[in-house]
Write a protein that binds this DNA or RNA. Structure first.
Lengths: 243, 243
DNA sequence: CCCGCTCGGTGTTCTAGAACACCTCGGCCC
DNA sequence: GGGCCGAGGTGTTCTAGAACACCGAGCGGG
Protein backbone atom coordinates (compact mmCIF):
# COMPACT_ATOMS: atom_id res chain seq x y z
CA UNK A 1 0.00 0.00 0.00
CA UNK A 2 2.97 2.25 0.48
CA UNK A 3 4.28 2.28 -3.05
CA UNK A 4 1.39 0.77 -4.90
CA UNK A 5 -1.66 2.85 -5.59
CA UNK A 6 -4.89 0.90 -5.78
CA UNK A 7 -6.69 1.01 -9.06
CA UNK A 8 -9.83 2.39 -7.57
CA UNK A 9 -7.83 5.28 -6.24
CA UNK A 10 -6.32 6.01 -9.63
CA UNK A 11 -9.69 5.93 -11.26
CA UNK A 12 -11.13 8.26 -8.64
CA UNK A 13 -8.27 10.67 -9.14
CA UNK A 14 -8.64 10.65 -12.87
CA UNK A 15 -12.34 11.38 -12.66
CA UNK A 16 -11.68 13.98 -10.02
CA UNK A 17 -9.22 15.65 -12.33
CA UNK A 18 -11.75 15.70 -15.16
CA UNK A 19 -14.38 17.21 -12.93
CA UNK A 20 -12.12 19.82 -11.43
CA UNK A 21 -10.66 20.79 -14.79
CA UNK A 22 -14.13 21.56 -16.06
CA UNK A 23 -13.97 18.76 -18.60
CA UNK A 24 -16.99 17.30 -16.84
CA UNK A 25 -19.24 20.12 -15.82
CA UNK A 26 -21.83 20.25 -13.06
CA UNK A 27 -24.90 18.22 -13.80
CA UNK A 28 -23.20 16.27 -16.53
CA UNK A 29 -24.04 12.63 -16.57
CA UNK A 30 -21.13 10.23 -16.44
CA UNK A 31 -21.12 7.12 -18.55
CA UNK A 32 -22.91 4.32 -16.81
CA UNK A 33 -20.93 2.28 -14.34
CA UNK A 34 -20.62 -0.75 -16.55
CA UNK A 35 -19.27 1.41 -19.31
CA UNK A 36 -16.79 3.04 -16.97
CA UNK A 37 -15.62 -0.36 -15.84
CA UNK A 38 -15.04 -1.34 -19.45
CA UNK A 39 -13.30 1.90 -20.25
CA UNK A 40 -10.98 1.62 -17.27
CA UNK A 41 -10.48 -2.10 -17.77
CA UNK A 42 -11.65 -3.12 -14.32
CA UNK A 43 -14.69 -4.72 -12.82
CA UNK A 44 -17.81 -2.94 -11.72
CA UNK A 45 -16.95 -3.28 -8.07
CA UNK A 46 -13.66 -1.50 -8.56
CA UNK A 47 -15.36 1.37 -10.39
CA UNK A 48 -17.97 1.55 -7.68
CA UNK A 49 -15.26 1.83 -5.08
CA UNK A 50 -13.83 4.80 -6.97
CA UNK A 51 -17.23 6.40 -7.32
CA UNK A 52 -17.83 5.91 -3.62
CA UNK A 53 -14.77 8.01 -2.88
CA UNK A 54 -15.93 10.77 -5.20
CA UNK A 55 -19.44 10.74 -3.85
CA UNK A 56 -18.13 10.98 -0.35
CA UNK A 57 -16.25 14.08 -1.42
CA UNK A 58 -19.48 15.44 -2.88
CA UNK A 59 -18.02 15.56 -6.37
CA UNK A 60 -20.62 13.24 -7.84
CA UNK A 61 -24.10 12.10 -7.10
CA UNK A 62 -25.27 8.60 -7.87
CA UNK A 63 -28.97 8.24 -8.53
CA UNK A 64 -30.39 4.78 -8.48
CA UNK A 65 -31.98 3.94 -11.78
CA UNK A 66 -30.93 7.19 -13.39
CA UNK A 67 -27.21 7.46 -13.58
CA UNK A 68 -24.19 9.10 -12.05
CA UNK A 69 -23.86 12.84 -12.27
CA UNK A 70 -21.29 15.46 -11.56
CA UNK A 71 -22.61 17.23 -8.51
CA UNK A 72 -23.62 20.83 -8.84
CA UNK A 73 -21.42 23.21 -6.94
CA UNK A 74 -22.90 23.90 -3.56
CA UNK A 75 -25.05 26.95 -3.61
CA UNK A 76 -25.19 28.54 -0.22
CA UNK A 77 -28.53 29.99 -0.69
CA UNK A 78 -30.91 31.03 1.99
CA UNK A 79 -34.44 30.22 1.01
CA UNK A 80 -35.51 32.76 3.54
CA UNK A 81 -34.74 35.03 0.68
CA UNK A 82 -37.63 33.54 -1.23
CA UNK A 83 -39.95 34.18 1.62
CA UNK A 84 -38.56 37.65 1.91
CA UNK A 85 -39.01 38.24 -1.76
CA UNK A 86 -42.63 37.30 -1.38
CA UNK A 87 -42.86 39.64 1.58
CA UNK A 88 -41.36 42.39 -0.53
CA UNK A 89 -43.75 41.81 -3.39
CA UNK A 90 -46.57 42.06 -0.93
CA UNK A 91 -45.22 45.30 0.35
CA UNK A 92 -45.22 46.52 -3.23
CA UNK A 93 -48.87 45.66 -3.51
CA UNK A 94 -48.48 42.70 -5.83
CA UNK A 95 -51.19 40.15 -5.10
CA UNK A 96 -49.62 37.13 -3.46
CA UNK A 97 -51.70 34.15 -2.46
CA UNK A 98 -51.36 30.56 -1.47
CA UNK A 99 -53.57 27.80 -2.76
CA UNK A 100 -53.79 24.52 -0.94
CA UNK A 101 -53.77 21.80 -3.56
CA UNK A 102 -53.95 18.71 -1.44
CA UNK A 103 -53.40 17.32 2.00
CA UNK A 104 -53.24 13.58 2.41
CA UNK A 105 -51.39 10.75 4.08
CA UNK A 106 -48.91 8.87 1.96
CA UNK A 107 -46.30 6.20 2.48
CA UNK A 108 -42.93 7.84 2.84
CA UNK A 109 -40.72 7.13 -0.12
CA UNK A 110 -37.01 6.78 0.22
CA UNK A 111 -36.28 10.47 0.08
CA UNK A 112 -38.93 11.38 2.62
CA UNK A 113 -38.01 8.62 5.04
CA UNK A 114 -34.36 9.62 4.90
CA UNK A 115 -35.12 13.29 5.39
CA UNK A 116 -37.54 12.79 8.27
CA UNK A 117 -35.64 9.88 9.75
CA UNK A 118 -38.69 7.67 9.73
CA UNK A 119 -39.03 4.11 8.55
CA UNK A 120 -39.37 3.20 4.91
CA UNK A 121 -43.04 3.39 3.90
CA UNK A 122 -43.99 5.00 7.20
CA UNK A 123 -47.05 7.19 7.01
CA UNK A 124 -46.45 10.84 6.41
CA UNK A 125 -48.69 13.77 5.82
CA UNK A 126 -48.13 15.34 2.43
CA UNK A 127 -49.31 18.89 1.87
CA UNK A 128 -49.16 20.55 -1.51
CA UNK A 129 -49.43 24.27 -1.88
CA UNK A 130 -49.08 26.62 -4.76
CA UNK A 131 -47.74 30.09 -4.19
CA UNK A 132 -49.19 32.57 -6.63
CA UNK A 133 -48.10 36.07 -7.45
CA UNK A 134 -50.70 38.08 -9.29
CA UNK A 135 -52.57 34.87 -10.01
CA UNK A 136 -49.58 33.24 -11.61
CA UNK A 137 -47.89 30.22 -9.96
CA UNK A 138 -44.59 31.18 -8.45
CA UNK A 139 -43.70 28.02 -6.64
CA UNK A 140 -45.03 24.62 -5.79
CA UNK A 141 -44.32 23.45 -2.30
CA UNK A 142 -44.71 19.89 -1.20
CA UNK A 143 -44.28 19.38 2.53
CA UNK A 144 -44.04 16.13 4.40
CA UNK A 145 -44.51 15.60 8.11
CA UNK A 146 -44.33 12.45 10.19
CA UNK A 147 -47.80 10.98 10.70
CA UNK A 148 -48.10 11.59 14.45
CA UNK A 149 -47.56 15.29 13.83
CA UNK A 150 -49.59 15.25 10.67
CA UNK A 151 -52.61 13.81 12.43
CA UNK A 152 -52.69 16.75 14.76
CA UNK A 153 -52.07 19.15 11.98
CA UNK A 154 -54.88 18.18 9.62
CA UNK A 155 -57.22 19.53 12.20
CA UNK A 156 -55.92 22.98 11.44
CA UNK A 157 -57.08 25.07 8.57
CA UNK A 158 -54.03 24.78 6.40
CA UNK A 159 -55.44 26.92 3.64
CA UNK A 160 -55.53 29.90 5.94
CA UNK A 161 -52.71 29.27 8.39
CA UNK A 162 -49.07 29.08 7.40
CA UNK A 163 -47.61 25.72 8.22
CA UNK A 164 -44.98 26.98 10.56
CA UNK A 165 -47.54 28.92 12.53
CA UNK A 166 -49.84 25.94 12.71
CA UNK A 167 -47.01 23.81 14.03
CA UNK A 168 -46.13 26.31 16.68
CA UNK A 169 -49.53 27.41 17.87
CA UNK A 170 -51.62 24.31 17.37
CA UNK A 171 -49.07 21.65 18.29
CA UNK A 172 -46.42 23.54 20.19
CA UNK A 173 -43.61 22.59 17.85
CA UNK A 174 -41.11 25.34 17.27
CA UNK A 175 -38.86 25.10 14.24
CA UNK A 176 -35.42 26.16 15.36
CA UNK A 177 -33.22 25.06 12.55
CA UNK A 178 -33.38 24.03 8.94
CA UNK A 179 -31.07 22.49 6.44
CA UNK A 180 -31.55 23.32 2.86
CA UNK A 181 -30.09 22.71 -0.54
CA UNK A 182 -31.06 24.05 -3.90
CA UNK A 183 -30.47 22.44 -7.25
CA UNK A 184 -31.38 23.07 -10.85
CA UNK A 185 -33.83 20.52 -12.15
CA UNK A 186 -36.19 19.94 -15.00
CA UNK A 187 -39.81 19.95 -14.03
CA UNK A 188 -41.56 16.64 -14.13
CA UNK A 189 -45.07 16.20 -15.40
CA UNK A 190 -46.88 16.82 -12.14
CA UNK A 191 -44.88 19.86 -11.18
CA UNK A 192 -44.98 21.33 -14.67
CA UNK A 193 -48.70 21.02 -14.79
CA UNK A 194 -49.31 22.73 -11.48
CA UNK A 195 -46.91 25.51 -12.29
CA UNK A 196 -48.20 26.02 -15.79
CA UNK A 197 -44.93 25.15 -17.48
CA UNK A 198 -43.77 22.82 -20.17
CA UNK A 199 -42.58 19.44 -19.03
CA UNK A 200 -38.81 19.55 -18.68
CA UNK A 201 -38.67 23.30 -18.15
CA UNK A 202 -35.72 24.36 -16.00
CA UNK A 203 -36.47 25.15 -12.39
CA UNK A 204 -34.94 25.51 -8.99
CA UNK A 205 -35.69 22.80 -6.53
CA UNK A 206 -35.17 23.51 -2.89
CA UNK A 207 -35.14 20.72 -0.38
CA UNK A 208 -35.36 21.69 3.23
CA UNK A 209 -35.48 19.70 6.43
CA UNK A 210 -36.73 21.65 9.40
CA UNK A 211 -35.85 20.66 12.92
CA UNK A 212 -37.63 21.35 16.14
CA UNK A 213 -36.10 21.79 19.55
CA UNK A 214 -34.28 18.61 20.46
CA UNK A 215 -33.01 18.12 16.95
CA UNK A 216 -36.00 16.23 15.65
CA UNK A 217 -36.79 16.54 11.96
CA UNK A 218 -40.40 17.62 11.69
CA UNK A 219 -40.89 18.94 8.18
CA UNK A 220 -39.39 18.02 4.86
CA UNK A 221 -40.16 20.58 2.20
CA UNK A 222 -39.61 20.38 -1.50
CA UNK A 223 -40.17 23.59 -3.34
CA UNK A 224 -40.15 23.90 -7.11
CA UNK A 225 -39.63 27.30 -8.62
CA UNK A 226 -39.61 27.71 -12.40
CA UNK A 227 -36.43 29.29 -13.63
CA UNK A 228 -38.24 32.06 -15.43
CA UNK A 229 -40.01 33.24 -12.29
CA UNK A 230 -37.26 33.69 -9.81
CA UNK A 231 -33.68 34.80 -9.87
CA UNK A 232 -31.12 34.44 -7.15
CA UNK A 233 -29.40 37.74 -6.70
CA UNK A 234 -26.81 38.77 -4.13
CA UNK A 235 -27.89 42.38 -4.00
CA UNK A 236 -31.09 41.86 -2.09
CA UNK A 237 -30.97 42.89 1.53
CA UNK A 238 -33.69 41.92 3.91
CA UNK A 239 -34.38 41.91 7.56
CA UNK A 240 -36.69 39.64 9.55
CA UNK A 241 -39.75 38.08 7.99
CA UNK A 242 -41.93 35.02 8.38
CA UNK A 243 -43.12 32.03 6.36
CA UNK B 1 -34.39 -0.80 -1.17
CA UNK B 2 -37.48 0.61 0.47
CA UNK B 3 -38.67 -2.46 2.31
CA UNK B 4 -35.62 -4.59 2.07
CA UNK B 5 -32.71 -3.86 4.30
CA UNK B 6 -29.37 -4.82 2.87
CA UNK B 7 -27.46 -7.41 4.78
CA UNK B 8 -24.45 -5.22 5.25
CA UNK B 9 -26.69 -2.68 6.89
CA UNK B 10 -28.12 -5.25 9.30
CA UNK B 11 -24.69 -6.43 10.20
CA UNK B 12 -23.50 -2.91 10.81
CA UNK B 13 -26.50 -2.20 12.99
CA UNK B 14 -25.99 -5.33 15.01
CA UNK B 15 -22.36 -4.56 15.62
CA UNK B 16 -23.27 -0.97 16.39
CA UNK B 17 -25.75 -2.19 18.94
CA UNK B 18 -23.15 -4.37 20.58
CA UNK B 19 -20.68 -1.55 20.74
CA UNK B 20 -23.15 0.99 22.08
CA UNK B 21 -24.55 -1.43 24.63
CA UNK B 22 -21.10 -1.89 26.09
CA UNK B 23 -21.01 -5.53 25.06
CA UNK B 24 -17.96 -4.67 23.00
CA UNK B 25 -15.91 -2.20 24.94
CA UNK B 26 -13.45 0.39 23.67
CA UNK B 27 -10.25 -1.11 22.46
CA UNK B 28 -11.72 -4.57 22.20
CA UNK B 29 -10.64 -6.48 19.18
CA UNK B 30 -13.42 -7.82 17.00
CA UNK B 31 -13.14 -11.28 15.49
CA UNK B 32 -11.24 -11.18 12.25
CA UNK B 33 -13.18 -10.30 9.16
CA UNK B 34 -13.22 -13.80 7.78
CA UNK B 35 -14.61 -15.06 11.04
CA UNK B 36 -17.26 -12.36 11.09
CA UNK B 37 -18.25 -13.30 7.56
CA UNK B 38 -18.65 -16.90 8.65
CA UNK B 39 -20.55 -15.96 11.75
CA UNK B 40 -22.95 -13.74 9.84
CA UNK B 41 -23.21 -16.17 6.95
CA UNK B 42 -22.09 -13.72 4.28
CA UNK B 43 -19.01 -13.14 2.25
CA UNK B 44 -16.05 -11.09 3.26
CA UNK B 45 -17.02 -8.22 0.97
CA UNK B 46 -20.38 -7.88 2.63
CA UNK B 47 -18.80 -7.80 6.07
CA UNK B 48 -16.30 -5.26 4.85
CA UNK B 49 -19.11 -3.09 3.62
CA UNK B 50 -20.66 -3.20 7.08
CA UNK B 51 -17.35 -2.41 8.73
CA UNK B 52 -16.85 0.49 6.36
CA UNK B 53 -20.04 2.05 7.63
CA UNK B 54 -18.98 1.63 11.22
CA UNK B 55 -15.53 2.97 10.59
CA UNK B 56 -16.97 5.99 8.89
CA UNK B 57 -19.00 6.60 12.03
CA UNK B 58 -15.82 6.29 14.06
CA UNK B 59 -17.16 3.32 15.96
CA UNK B 60 -14.38 1.00 14.90
CA UNK B 61 -10.85 1.22 13.67
CA UNK B 62 -9.45 -1.21 11.16
CA UNK B 63 -5.71 -1.76 11.31
CA UNK B 64 -4.10 -3.46 8.42
CA UNK B 65 -2.37 -6.60 9.52
CA UNK B 66 -3.54 -6.28 13.09
CA UNK B 67 -7.26 -6.52 13.33
CA UNK B 68 -10.42 -4.55 13.79
CA UNK B 69 -10.99 -2.75 17.06
CA UNK B 70 -13.74 -0.93 18.79
CA UNK B 71 -12.61 2.65 18.71
CA UNK B 72 -11.79 4.23 22.00
CA UNK B 73 -14.14 7.00 22.99
CA UNK B 74 -12.61 10.24 21.99
CA UNK B 75 -10.53 11.57 24.79
CA UNK B 76 -10.31 15.27 24.55
CA UNK B 77 -7.06 15.45 26.28
CA UNK B 78 -4.61 18.26 26.02
CA UNK B 79 -1.09 16.96 26.06
CA UNK B 80 -0.12 20.41 27.12
CA UNK B 81 -1.19 19.02 30.43
CA UNK B 82 1.75 16.68 30.33
CA UNK B 83 4.07 19.52 29.70
CA UNK B 84 2.40 21.44 32.42
CA UNK B 85 2.71 18.55 34.78
CA UNK B 86 6.41 18.53 34.13
CA UNK B 87 6.49 22.25 34.72
CA UNK B 88 4.69 21.73 37.99
CA UNK B 89 7.05 18.99 39.10
CA UNK B 90 9.89 21.32 38.37
CA UNK B 91 8.29 24.00 40.44
CA UNK B 92 8.11 21.46 43.24
CA UNK B 93 11.81 20.86 42.94
CA UNK B 94 11.61 17.40 41.44
CA UNK B 95 14.54 16.81 39.08
CA UNK B 96 13.23 16.75 35.54
CA UNK B 97 15.56 16.24 32.62
CA UNK B 98 15.52 15.35 28.98
CA UNK B 99 17.90 12.93 27.40
CA UNK B 100 18.44 12.89 23.67
CA UNK B 101 18.58 9.29 22.60
CA UNK B 102 19.05 9.62 18.90
CA UNK B 103 18.66 11.91 15.94
CA UNK B 104 18.83 10.41 12.51
CA UNK B 105 17.23 10.43 9.09
CA UNK B 106 14.88 7.61 8.30
CA UNK B 107 12.48 6.68 5.53
CA UNK B 108 8.99 7.72 6.51
CA UNK B 109 6.77 4.77 7.18
CA UNK B 110 3.09 4.82 6.40
CA UNK B 111 2.11 6.50 9.63
CA UNK B 112 4.72 9.20 9.36
CA UNK B 113 4.09 9.92 5.70
CA UNK B 114 0.36 10.22 6.35
CA UNK B 115 0.85 12.48 9.36
CA UNK B 116 3.36 14.79 7.70
CA UNK B 117 1.72 14.58 4.29
CA UNK B 118 4.94 13.56 2.62
CA UNK B 119 5.52 10.77 0.15
CA UNK B 120 5.83 7.18 1.19
CA UNK B 121 9.44 6.45 2.16
CA UNK B 122 10.37 10.12 1.97
CA UNK B 123 13.24 11.10 4.20
CA UNK B 124 12.36 12.39 7.61
CA UNK B 125 14.34 13.37 10.64
CA UNK B 126 13.59 11.19 13.61
CA UNK B 127 14.48 12.47 17.06
CA UNK B 128 14.13 10.37 20.15
CA UNK B 129 14.09 11.90 23.58
CA UNK B 130 13.51 10.50 27.00
CA UNK B 131 11.91 12.65 29.64
CA UNK B 132 13.11 11.76 33.11
CA UNK B 133 11.73 12.72 36.44
CA UNK B 134 14.11 12.14 39.31
CA UNK B 135 16.22 10.00 37.02
CA UNK B 136 13.35 7.76 36.14
CA UNK B 137 11.94 7.68 32.60
CA UNK B 138 8.60 9.41 32.41
CA UNK B 139 8.00 9.42 28.71
CA UNK B 140 9.61 8.53 25.46
CA UNK B 141 9.05 10.98 22.68
CA UNK B 142 9.76 10.21 19.09
CA UNK B 143 9.45 13.21 16.78
CA UNK B 144 9.50 13.22 13.00
CA UNK B 145 10.07 16.19 10.75
CA UNK B 146 10.19 16.44 6.97
CA UNK B 147 13.77 16.22 5.74
CA UNK B 148 14.09 19.79 4.44
CA UNK B 149 13.24 21.08 7.90
CA UNK B 150 15.21 18.34 9.59
CA UNK B 151 18.36 19.24 7.71
CA UNK B 152 18.25 22.73 9.11
CA UNK B 153 17.39 21.49 12.52
CA UNK B 154 20.22 19.02 13.07
CA UNK B 155 22.51 21.97 13.14
CA UNK B 156 20.90 23.00 16.40
CA UNK B 157 21.83 21.55 19.73
CA UNK B 158 18.79 19.46 20.31
CA UNK B 159 19.95 18.16 23.64
CA UNK B 160 19.84 21.62 25.10
CA UNK B 161 17.13 23.39 23.13
CA UNK B 162 13.49 22.37 23.16
CA UNK B 163 12.31 21.35 19.73
CA UNK B 164 9.64 23.95 19.44
CA UNK B 165 12.06 26.67 20.34
CA UNK B 166 14.60 25.42 17.88
CA UNK B 167 12.00 25.45 15.13
CA UNK B 168 10.95 28.97 15.91
CA UNK B 169 14.27 30.63 16.55
CA UNK B 170 16.62 28.70 14.30
CA UNK B 171 14.30 28.13 11.32
CA UNK B 172 11.55 30.66 11.80
CA UNK B 173 8.77 28.09 11.93
CA UNK B 174 6.06 28.88 14.40
CA UNK B 175 3.78 26.08 15.51
CA UNK B 176 0.29 27.47 15.60
CA UNK B 177 -1.87 24.42 15.85
CA UNK B 178 -1.71 20.79 16.74
CA UNK B 179 -3.91 17.79 16.44
CA UNK B 180 -3.58 15.11 18.98
CA UNK B 181 -5.02 11.81 20.02
CA UNK B 182 -4.22 9.58 22.92
CA UNK B 183 -4.72 5.89 23.09
CA UNK B 184 -3.95 3.06 25.45
CA UNK B 185 -1.34 0.73 24.07
CA UNK B 186 1.02 -1.98 25.12
CA UNK B 187 4.64 -1.05 24.99
CA UNK B 188 6.67 -2.70 22.30
CA UNK B 189 10.18 -3.91 22.81
CA UNK B 190 11.95 -0.71 21.91
CA UNK B 191 9.74 1.54 23.96
CA UNK B 192 9.65 -0.81 26.92
CA UNK B 193 13.37 -0.97 26.99
CA UNK B 194 13.90 2.77 26.92
CA UNK B 195 11.27 3.35 29.55
CA UNK B 196 12.47 0.56 31.81
CA UNK B 197 9.24 -1.41 31.59
CA UNK B 198 8.21 -4.92 30.79
CA UNK B 199 7.32 -5.57 27.16
CA UNK B 200 3.58 -5.28 26.80
CA UNK B 201 3.16 -3.02 29.79
CA UNK B 202 0.16 -0.71 29.45
CA UNK B 203 0.92 2.83 28.44
CA UNK B 204 -0.57 5.93 26.99
CA UNK B 205 0.44 6.78 23.49
CA UNK B 206 -0.06 10.29 22.30
CA UNK B 207 0.17 11.11 18.64
CA UNK B 208 0.38 14.73 17.70
CA UNK B 209 0.72 16.52 14.42
CA UNK B 210 1.85 20.09 14.74
CA UNK B 211 1.11 22.65 12.07
CA UNK B 212 2.92 25.84 11.22
CA UNK B 213 1.41 28.99 9.80
CA UNK B 214 -0.15 28.17 6.45
CA UNK B 215 -1.41 24.83 7.66
CA UNK B 216 1.69 22.84 6.87
CA UNK B 217 2.38 19.80 9.04
CA UNK B 218 5.88 20.19 10.41
CA UNK B 219 6.19 17.82 13.34
CA UNK B 220 4.72 14.44 14.05
CA UNK B 221 5.23 13.39 17.64
CA UNK B 222 4.62 10.06 19.23
CA UNK B 223 4.90 10.05 22.99
CA UNK B 224 4.80 6.91 25.12
CA UNK B 225 3.97 7.25 28.76
CA UNK B 226 3.85 4.16 30.94
CA UNK B 227 0.53 3.77 32.65
CA UNK B 228 2.08 3.58 36.09
CA UNK B 229 3.81 6.92 35.71
CA UNK B 230 1.09 9.25 34.64
CA UNK B 231 -2.58 9.61 35.27
CA UNK B 232 -5.03 11.75 33.44
CA UNK B 233 -7.03 13.65 35.97
CA UNK B 234 -9.59 16.35 35.46
CA UNK B 235 -8.76 18.20 38.63
CA UNK B 236 -5.48 19.56 37.46
CA UNK B 237 -5.46 23.22 36.57
CA UNK B 238 -2.56 24.74 34.77
CA UNK B 239 -1.63 27.89 32.98
CA UNK B 240 0.95 28.56 30.31
CA UNK B 241 4.09 26.50 29.94
CA UNK B 242 6.54 25.39 27.27
CA UNK B 243 7.85 22.20 25.70
C1' DC C 1 -56.75 13.89 -20.61
C1' DC C 2 -55.20 11.03 -16.92
C1' DC C 3 -53.52 6.95 -15.00
C1' DG C 4 -51.35 2.59 -15.01
C1' DC C 5 -48.31 -0.65 -16.98
C1' DT C 6 -44.30 -2.18 -19.48
C1' DC C 7 -39.77 -1.93 -21.07
C1' DG C 8 -35.15 -0.52 -21.43
C1' DG C 9 -31.55 1.58 -18.97
C1' DT C 10 -28.94 2.12 -14.76
C1' DG C 11 -27.62 1.67 -9.92
C1' DT C 12 -27.13 -1.72 -5.86
C1' DT C 13 -26.24 -5.84 -3.43
C1' DC C 14 -24.08 -10.05 -3.01
C1' DT C 15 -21.44 -14.34 -3.86
C1' DA C 16 -16.96 -16.82 -3.99
C1' DG C 17 -12.55 -16.76 -4.16
C1' DA C 18 -7.57 -15.52 -4.85
C1' DA C 19 -3.62 -12.82 -4.35
C1' DC C 20 -1.27 -9.18 -2.24
C1' DA C 21 0.15 -6.11 1.68
C1' DC C 22 0.86 -5.30 6.41
C1' DC C 23 1.99 -6.51 11.27
C1' DT C 24 3.98 -8.86 15.25
C1' DC C 25 6.79 -12.02 17.44
C1' DG C 26 10.36 -15.19 17.97
C1' DG C 27 14.60 -17.01 16.66
C1' DC C 28 19.08 -16.68 14.77
C1' DC C 29 23.26 -14.47 13.39
C1' DC C 30 26.72 -10.92 13.54
C1' DG D 1 22.50 -5.92 21.87
C1' DG D 2 20.78 -4.96 17.40
C1' DG D 3 19.18 -6.29 13.01
C1' DC D 4 17.15 -9.41 9.83
C1' DC D 5 14.21 -13.08 8.38
C1' DG D 6 10.42 -16.20 8.40
C1' DA D 7 5.98 -17.78 9.93
C1' DG D 8 1.43 -17.03 11.16
C1' DG D 9 -2.33 -13.96 11.43
C1' DT D 10 -5.12 -10.26 9.52
C1' DG D 11 -6.63 -6.51 6.48
C1' DT D 12 -7.06 -4.93 1.43
C1' DT D 13 -7.77 -5.15 -3.38
C1' DC D 14 -9.66 -7.19 -7.22
C1' DT D 15 -12.02 -10.36 -10.45
C1' DA D 16 -16.33 -12.09 -12.63
C1' DG D 17 -20.75 -12.47 -12.62
C1' DA D 18 -25.76 -12.68 -11.34
C1' DA D 19 -29.88 -11.03 -9.48
C1' DC D 20 -32.52 -7.42 -7.66
C1' DA D 21 -34.29 -2.54 -7.23
C1' DC D 22 -35.18 1.87 -9.09
C1' DC D 23 -36.35 5.31 -12.69
C1' DG D 24 -38.42 7.61 -16.63
C1' DA D 25 -40.58 7.57 -21.02
C1' DG D 26 -43.89 5.90 -23.97
C1' DC D 27 -48.04 3.60 -24.98
C1' DG D 28 -52.60 1.98 -24.32
C1' DG D 29 -56.99 1.94 -22.09
C1' DG D 30 -60.73 4.08 -19.61
Amino acid sequence: MNGRVPRYHRIAEELRERIQSGDLGPGVRLPNQRRLARDFGVTLMTVRHALELLERDNLIRRQHGLGTFVAAPSIDYDILQLRRLVGELRAQGEPVSTRLLSSRFVAADRRVSAALEIGPRARALQIERLRLVDGRPMSLQRSFLPAPIGEELVKADLAATPLRQALEFKIGLVIVRARESVSAVRLGRREARELGCAVGAPAFESERVSFAVGGRAVVFDRVFIPGDRFRITRQLHFEGASA
